[in-house]
Amino acid sequence: MQLLLMALAPIFIIIFYIYLKDKYEKEPKRLLIISFLLGAIVSIIITTLLYSVFNTLVPLQDKLSVWEQFKQAFFVVGFSEELSKFLIVLLFAQQRKEFNEPFDGIVYAVMVSMGFAATENVMYVMQSGHATALARAFTAVPAHATFGILMGYFMGKAKFAPNKLYLNLLGLLSAILFHGAYDFFLFINFIPGIWIGAIISLGIGLYLSKKAIKYHQQSSQFKDTRETIS
């Protein structure tokens, strides 16, 4: 039970943080829960299927090859996981009438991402213990949140823009880029000290995520209404 709580605590801290940042027109809790569950179940299933395809088509030939690990990080793991989340946001959340401001892209993408991260984190933590739970609470879980925020930033803009396809794909590509970069530096840990690249990648992702949240907050069409009422 303690390991389960340690695995899920950082997930729900991030969810609560994003919920508070949705200042002007909060999303229905029902849709947030559904998005989370879709990420925790459907996204994991899609990712598993994609892994099977990629591991057949692009098998890892040499664990000590930088190029092989680059392919794994960006084209297998990054692409598979972020595409699975992207499809749920695109086909479920973005179609809802409640998705009525750009910030909602961030909210729903983070909910899906945290659902995915919850399942993944429970699996890792239950297998590897307290040290893994603590390490992932400050690395992998926030990383998944940044991937979701960056994806959601562009998908939020896409909902209300004429160039929807371009912005949606930009959201997907930005998540893949940061996910791939983060994993790549961890995958090539046979190079001493290279893991610091993952921390730098995460730091950049956190910085851009903060700016994305602030931008959509300030540009919300509900901002003036709420401030007038207050």
Rank of each mutant, 00 (worst) to 15 (best):
M1T: 15
L4Q: 04
M6D: 03
M6I: 11
A7T: 00
A9S: 15
I11P: 12
I11G: 13
I13D: 10
F16M: 15
F16S: 12
K23E: 12
K23G: 06
K26H: 00
E27Q: 14
P28F: 00
I34D: 09
I34G: 04
I34N: 07
G39C: 08
A40E: 09
I41C: 02
I44L: 11
I44V: 15
I45N: 07
T47M: 10
Y51D: 09
N55T: 14
L57W: 04
L57C: 04
Q61C: 03
E68D: 15
E68A: 15
Q69T: 06
F70E: 02
K71V: 06
K71F: 10
A73M: 01
F74D: 05
F86C: 00
L87M: 09
L87C: 02
L90N: 10
L90A: 10
L91V: 08
F92T: 01
A93L: 02
Q95V: 06
K97S: 13
E101C: 07
E101R: 03
D104C: 10
I106Y: 05
V107K: 07
A109W: 00
M111K: 03
M114C: 02
A118Y: 07
T119E: 07
E120Q: 11
N121P: 03
N121K: 03
Y124M: 08
Y124D: 05
G129L: 00
A131P: 00
T132K: 06
A133P: 02
R136G: 05
R136S: 10
A137D: 03
H144E: 07
A145F: 14
F147D: 12
F147C: 11
I149W: 00
L150A: 12
Y153P: 09
F154V: 13
M155L: 08
A158S: 12
A158P: 04
A161G: 05
K164L: 00
Y166L: 14
Y166T: 07
L167R: 04
L167K: 04
L169F: 14
L170I: 07
L173E: 06
S174D: 03
I176H: 06
F178P: 01
H179D: 09
G180L: 04
D183M: 09
D183P: 02
D183Y: 03
F184G: 11
F187Y: 14
N189S: 13
P192G: 15
W195S: 15
I196D: 11
I196K: 13
I196R: 13
G197S: 05
I199L: 15
S201P: 05
I204W: 13
K210R: 02
K210S: 06
K210N: 10
Q218M: 10
S219W: 11
Q221Y: 01
F222M: 01
F222W: 07
K223M: 14
